[in-house]
Computed example of a mutant assay.
Amino acid sequence: MLRFFLTLSLCLISLGLLAQNRTYTYLIYHKLSPGLTVQDALPVEREWRAVNQAAVDEGNMIGWYMMAKQMTSNPNPAEYDYVTVIVSPSMNIKGGSPAAMAKLYGDSVQTRMASLNARDRATAPVVKMEVWETAGAYAFSPDFTPEKAPVVVFNYMKPYDPKAPWLDIMDAMKAGATNRLKDGSLSGWAFSKLILPNGSEKGYSLLVAQIGTNPAAIANQLVFTGESAKAHTQSRQTFDIVRQEVFRVMEFTNRPGTTAGK
C-alpha cells in the first residue's frame, strides 16, 4: 500500500496541537521487513517528515508523527512495529502544493516520490490504517512539543453499554485532563471515535491518547485528585480498555513559526 499520496485518492489517529474543533487522525501501522529495525526505517520516515512538513507549513495538514511501539497488551504483539500519524483538518488529506514539492525536489518530484514509495514498501509496509475523528475533546499544554513530551499512551476502548449516554462524561474527562496539565503529569490528552474501518470485530471504537514525559508519570494514579480522580473513576466505570499501547515519538513535524524544542 502506498503512503500519503495514495491516501489522497481514498477520500476518507490526536497527537498535536489541534487548532480546529474537529480534526481527523490517520493511524498508519507499519510492519518492518524481516531483519530490519526501527533504526532502518528512520531515513525513509525522515524524508516523509520533510514532505509532510511542506503540507504543515501551508496549513494543509496539522501534523505528522512517527511513533515506535514500546509496550502493548495486544495478544499479537508482532502485528506491527510502529505507527505514523497524520492529523488533518478534514477527512481528505491534502499534501503540499506543487510549488512546495518543487522547492523540495526541484524538477524530480515524480521520480523522487516514486523512489520514496518504493523504499517505504521495502522497509516497512503498511499493514492497516484507521481514521479517527476528534470533536472538541482534547487538551494540550501551551508549550507542548513532542521533543519535550515524547511518550504517548493509547487506550483503545469500547463502552460497556453502547446504549448508555456515555458522551455525557466527555466534559468531565476533559476537565480531569486539563487539571493534570496544570500539575505536569500530562502534556496532552485527546478523545477520538473510530470512523473507518469501524466493524464490531475490531473490539474497540474509541481512543484516548495521553501524552507526557514518561509512562510512569502518565499512569501514576496517585496524582489523580479532584476533577482528575472523578473523571478517572467515571471513565473506568463507563469504558472497557480493550487494548493499551505505549509509543515513543521518534520524528515529527513542527508548526509554522516554531523550531524543535520551542
Rank of each mutant, 00 (worst) to 15 (best):
G136R: 11
P159V: 01
P165F: 13
R119A: 11
W64F: 14
I169P: 00
N254W: 11
I218Y: 04
V249W: 10
L27H: 15
N220W: 03
N92S: 12
T225S: 07
G95N: 12
R119Y: 06
F4Y: 14
I241C: 06
N74V: 01
S141G: 11
L27C: 14
N155Q: 09
G59F: 13
A102D: 00
D143K: 05
P162G: 05
E147Y: 13
M157K: 08
Y82D: 00
A164D: 02
M129T: 15
L42W: 09
G176R: 01
N92H: 10
L206W: 06
Q110K: 12
G95C: 10
K128F: 09
K262M: 15
A78E: 13
G184Q: 05
Y65K: 15
G199C: 02
K182H: 05
P215I: 11
V51E: 12
Y29H: 07
F252N: 05
G16I: 07
K202L: 15
E45K: 07
R255Q: 13
H30F: 08
Q110F: 03
V153L: 03
V83Y: 03
P256W: 06
F247E: 01
S185E: 10
F5L: 01
H232D: 03
K94I: 15
D183W: 00
P162V: 07
V109R: 04
S9A: 09
L12T: 11
E133I: 11
G199Y: 09
K262G: 12
K103C: 03
L17K: 15
T145W: 04
A137L: 07
L27K: 13
A216Y: 15
M1P: 03
A217P: 09
L206V: 08
P159N: 02
P162W: 01
S9H: 07
A190G: 12
G261I: 06
L6K: 15
R112W: 02
P256A: 02
T238R: 05
A114P: 05
E130H: 03
G63K: 08
E47H: 10
K69E: 07
D143F: 07
V126F: 04
K182Y: 04
L2N: 12
E130K: 02
K182V: 14
A149W: 15
S187R: 14
P146D: 11
E58P: 11
M129V: 13
R243T: 13
L167Q: 11
E133Q: 09
L6D: 12
N117P: 01
Q20S: 13
Y65R: 14
